[in-house]
Each structure stands twice: as C-alpha cells, then as structure tokens.
C-alpha cells in the first residue's frame, strides 16, 4: 500500500481541464463539482476510485473541480496530485 503524506493539487480550472486537490485522510473519500455533474458525476467518481486503486492508495481525500475534462485528463491530473502528495511538501 502506498500512502500520501501531504496535501497537493494538480490541474487547472480551464475548459476541458480539471483541478484536483488531495489530502491525507483515514479512508479514500471523493467529492466532485462539475459542469457536467448530471451527465458524468457518477463516472467521475468511478474514475477517481480506479486511479486510487491502481496506485494502491487508501488514505486520500480527493476533491475534484471539473470543467468538462475527459476521463484520461481526470486520470492524469489525479495521478499527478497523488504523486505530488506522496512527497513531503517543499
């Protein structure tokens, strides 16, 4: 199991992008704000959970502010944020 040890963020609030904040927590927790919440809200949560699984992280509180990003972009931004959070804050 991998652990995140600091809070971190990745991405932007530009169109087709997503801004993701992560911080250490007891369990994985995912919350989503999105311009396409009605159409893709559930899918975004599932994507986030699958990235957490793939990276074997179980202690991340994840907050997603989505501006219509594609799945592969959400995956990239979350992975970036988690990788950053695996290191000490500079």
């Amino acid at each position: 199991m991998n652990k995140i040890i600091s809070s971190a963020s990745a991405g932007t609030l530009e169109s087709s992008d997503v801004y993701i904040e992560v911080e250490p927590s007891e369990n994985n927790e995912v919350s989503v704000e999105s311009v396409v919440l009605k159409q893709f809200g559930d899918s975004i949560v599932k994507t986030a959970e699958s990235v957490l699984d793939e990276l074997d992280i179980k202690n991340a509180k994840v907050h997603i502010i989505d501006k219509g990003a594609l799945d592969c972009v959400i995956r990239a931004r979350l992975e970036t944020a988690l990788r950053r959070a695996e290191k000490e804050n500079k």
């Binding site: 396409v36 009605k38 159409q39 893709f40 809200g41 559930d42 899918s43 594609l70 799945d71």
Partner: peptide, 10 residues
C-alpha cells in the same frame, strides 16, 4: 468513444 456515454437528463 472520446467523452464516454453521458447519463440521460431527468
């Protein structure tokens, strides 16, 4: 295939 299939609006 690019976006995924959106859920239908209520």
């Amino acid at each position: 295939s690019i976006t995924g299939v959106p859920q239908k609006l209520k």
